[in-house]
Amino acid sequence: MTRVGLLGYGIAGRVFHAPLISSTEGMDLVAIVTANPERQAQARAAHPDAKIVTADELFELDLDLIVVGTPNRTHVEYARKAIDKGVAVVVDKPFAPSSAEGEELVAAAQAKGVPLTVFQNRRWDSDFLTVRKIIGRLGEVRRFESRYERWVPEIWDNWREFGAPEEAGGLLYDLGAHLVDQALQLFGPVSSVYAELDQRRPGAQVDDDVFVALTHKNGVRSHLWAGAHTAQHGPRFRVLGSEGAFVISGLDEQEDALDAGRRPTDANWGYETRSGQLGVLDQTIEVPVELGAYETFYTELQAGRIPVDPTSAVQALRVIEAAFTSARENRVVEL
């Protein structure tokens, strides 16, 4: 059995990592770190065989895998401790507050021969898997549009809303880490970045309205949006090609399913009734979404494969950093 220790039991740990680890054959969630009494009670109820420990205690345990699902400011510190201990490590997104720190982690892991990966679970969203499947039917892709939009008019009392740079808060680091990663997965490296970042909600300390335009080296243009104050949501994806387009709305349902207690081992896991439209103008056909498959991340890891190359997360961080520069200086940034 692969003995797993989980750092953090907020949304990342409680909703994603703990359920997925526990559902993966051959993995044993043996320890969870959270100092919050309410979360400790939740963890004990959901995972009674796992010990509730401190971070220092976790690093003293005999573990095969450490998962870092803590606030962004601690990702590098805990990942480096796992690497120094010689234990395989999963780091939640964003990988690090900066590409330089991400590069240092990759180099350290390579030097020690320690497996290192990043939890980019949205690569296994149902709608993204559908885009990957049908994109060859669009001819030459010219423009890719992608959105994560929410209506959260009140500011949360949460580190994601804190403005200190070390927190790596705001939507560009949070949802933008997924948006940029998906665009890079589909269309490859970027030659230039333009961004508009705003703070729309009264009292906001971080970006809560994001637009990023990427020009990929192959000529495709990706337009990416994220918003916390978006009263009407646009399509999740719109992909425009020389021979047709694909449009799909709504969001992948796996997060809500996990939060509600469903697991990948349940019948019909990942199934949705959503569909997209493929074609030209009113000459379209309905395309059912693919099955969502978040469980693939940990099943791949258990099989000895790296599900997400950490260097791809470093590349995404470089794009995010360029977006911050673009918005601050009101210019296109060349990469």
Rank of each mutant, 00 (worst) to 15 (best):
P153K: 15
T70H: 04
H75E: 07
N121P: 00
W156G: 00
E77Y: 10
L105M: 11
G102K: 04
Y148C: 05
W124I: 01
P165K: 03
T117N: 06
W151A: 04
F119D: 08
F95T: 12
E145R: 06
E149Y: 03
V118Y: 00
W151F: 15
L105W: 02
E145S: 05
S126G: 13
T74S: 12
Q120H: 15
R142W: 07
R160M: 11
Y78C: 06
N158A: 09
G139C: 01
L138G: 14
V152A: 01
Q120W: 04
Q110I: 13
F95R: 03
G102S: 07
A108C: 13
I135H: 14
L65H: 06
R160G: 03
F59D: 07
V90A: 01
V131A: 04
R142M: 12
D84N: 15
F95H: 09
T130F: 09
K85A: 14
P94M: 01
F119G: 02
R122A: 00
A164E: 11
E60S: 11
E103D: 13
D92S: 07
V67S: 15
F128M: 00
N72D: 05
A108G: 12
N158L: 08
R73T: 09
G69L: 01
D125G: 00
W156R: 13
R143E: 10
E149Q: 15
R80V: 07
V67K: 09
R73M: 08
V114A: 11
V87S: 06
R160P: 00
E104G: 10
